[in-house]
């Protein structure tokens, strides 16, 4: 197999305890590879360490131990500073309301990145902004609007357009559709599925929602209390979960004929 796009090896993160509290091991020995063009999901509940893992890979958090390689080059890990991956790794966050500068028009927000990173002439930037907006299913007219006049779904589209503007190789989506209404969630999810086909981009998709993960990822890692409990192809894991924790997660998803059960959370 060729060199993976992303290699995460033995990643560990310990948050020192405040005062008398014990140290918190948020991520404990996480390792996985992600191939070019692949979509890998990290699944888990709150406190499982999935978001911390993603933030370390993005360079927003330092690691206590282990390393993260992008194209064989170390971009995060023990002793490595923040934000070393450059524009190759971009991230879309959960909160559609905080993800954009409230006082910056949509067009300006995208143009700013183009101006700083590519030093294109203004006319070229304008054309690229229009192209990016179209790519995420928005109009050119949206370029002149402030985030407050957009709906949650539209804001999330702008956040995606901004991330794509830098032509990253890996896009980290941290619960990117979790805060959206059901009907809008499907729109953004479909957009993400289409974009991956068009752009040959790789996704690291962090989510608690197994149904969403099923649609968007090739492989998934199930995390619990900082540890990867199960990893494999998404279809395999969701159809034939091997670990009790994964089974519990699946059993807790409401579906036709589902009865809530008290035992689900005892682990």
């Amino acid at each position: 197999m060729s060199e993976p796009l992303l290699r995460v090896a033995n990643l560990r993160k310990v948050f020192p305890g405040q005062g008398t509290a014990d140290d918190l091991v948020a991520v404990d020995g996480v390792s996985f590879d992600l191939q070019q063009g692949e979509s890998v999901a990290i699944v888990g509940e709150s406190g499982s360490g999935k978001t911390t893992t993603a933030r370390i890979i993005a360079g927003l958090e330092t690691a206590t131990d282990g390393e993260v390689l992008l194209d064989g080059k170390t971009v995060a890990g023990r002793g490595i500073g923040l934000l070393r991956a450059g524009r190759d790794i971009q991230m879309v966050f959960q909160d559609p309301f905080g993800s954009l500068d409230p006082r910056q028009r949509v067009g300006a927000a995208i143009e700013e990145l183009l101006a700083v990173r590519f030093r294109q002439p203004k006319a070229e930037r304008r054309a690229r902004v229009a192209e990016l907006l179209e790519q995420v299913g928005l109009d050119e007219q949206h370029a002149g609007e402030y985030p407050r006049s957009l709906s949650g779904g539209q804001r999330q589209r702008v956040a995606i357009a901004r991330a794509l503007a830098l032509q990253p190789r890996l896009l980290i989506l941290d619960e990117a559709v979790a805060a959206l209404d059901v009907s809008v969630q499907a729109q953004v999810l479909n957009l993400l599925i289409d974009l991956r086909e068009q752009l040959d981009i790789s996704y690291l998709f962090v989510s608690h929602d197994l149904a969403v993960v099923r649609q968007i990822s090739d492989r998934c890692l199930v995390m619990n209390e900082g540890v990867v409990v199960e990893a494999g192809t998404t279809a395999d894991i969701l159809d034939h979960p091997g670990q009790p924790y994964t089974q519990q997660l699946l059993a807790a998803v409401p579906r036709p004929g589902w009865v809530p059960s008290r035992r689900a959370a005892t682990a």
């Binding site: 209404d181 499907a186 729109q187 999810l189 649609q215």
Partner: peptide, 23 residues
Amino acid sequence: AALLASRPSPTSVARPVSIPGRP
């Protein structure tokens, strides 16, 4: 019907049918 169809399925890969526009 649209709400039911727009919910992605955990058991199979099927493109969720989105409702155009916003609530």
